[in-house]
């Protein structure tokens, strides 16, 4: 082992002790290693009990988000060399419940994603025999950026509003809603207002902008939220002043279970 670097990991073992603690490991400082490679090395060679999530090792599956020296990061795309001489402090993503070691509870996030009805809603049912919808490259570009979210939750970790207000639906979910709202094939804006206008919706955002700074895929949730606020404000006043003019959702696309 030539050069090494110290890694300090925030550990939490609920079955052993009630509070989290820090544990230090020393790993080789290999030129191409990411922080994740260091964690893999620890698990394989130093401590089999360290738990964390990972899968693709190419920054697209969204599993390996953690706090690295206090900043949310994808650990597979954050490299040891950038942190010389160390030590590197690794913690679970902030603003989430921690289940064990570096593993956070993502159920709440999954529920929030679903609450914005992230599927294509159309007024009329289309059949395969109708062929493809036309969508020009410009129409695609109008929402393409918002399709790039990998659900890594770094933005939730960076956002103080998420930390202070657990009802806030959050940056990724609103960006996802906007991904469909701005898709010319979709006509579900009205169905999504219910979540986005309500308590915990887009107006809970106080425009800190941290989500866009944290986003590894340049989705720009801040922009998505502010653009919704402009549309949502119009809808809000319509509902208040002249409810008839408010856009009533025709359907929300949900397929019910039949007993």
């Amino acid at each position: 082992m030539d050069k090494t670097i110290k890694i300090q990991v925030r550990r939490y073992l609920p079955e052993k002790q009630p509070d989290p603690f820090w544990q230090e490991y020393e790993v080789p400082l290999e030129p191409k290693w990411g922080v994740l490679d260091a964690l893999i090395y620890i698990k394989d060679h130093l401590d089999g009990s360290l738990s964390y999530r990972w899968s693709c090792h190419m920054g697209v599956c969204g599993s390996c988000g953690m706090m690295v020296n206090g900043e949310p990061a994808l650990t597979c795309a954050t490299f040891l060399e950038e942190y010389q001489p160390g030590p590197i402090r690794i913690e679970p993503l902030a603003n989430f419940k921690v289940l064990r070691d570096l593993i956070i509870d993502t159920d709440d996030f999954m529920g929030k994603l679903k609450s914005v009805k992230p599927w294509l809603i159309t007024d009329e049912k289309r059949d395969i025999t109708d062929g493809e919808n036309r969508q020009t490259p410009a129409e695609l570009k109008a929402f393409k950026q918002y399709t790039l979210c990998i659900n890594c939750m770094l933005c939730y970790s960076a956002c103080p509003v998420v930390g202070l207000n657990e009802d806030f639906v959050g940056p990724a979910a609103i960006a996802l809603a906007q991904r469909y709202n701005y898709d010319n094939r979709d006509s579900g804006n009205a169905a999504r207002h219910d979540t986005l206008l309500a308590h915990g919706g887009a107006f809970d955002c106080t425009l800190i902008g941290e989500c866009s700074r944290a986003c590894p895929k340049h989705v720009d949730p801040t922009g998505a939220i502010q653009r919704y606020k402009a549309d949502g404000a119009m809808e809000y006043w319509k509902r208040l002043i002249w409810p008839k003019a408010a856009t009533a959702p025709k359907n929300d696309g949900i397929v019910k279970q039949i007993d």
Binding site: Y12, P14, E15, D19, P20, N95, K97, V98, L99, G163
Partner: peptide, 14 residues
Amino acid sequence: FRPSAYHPSMALTW
């Protein structure tokens, strides 16, 4: 084993 999640709260000085 029922997991007991640890929920760190945000410090006033965040």
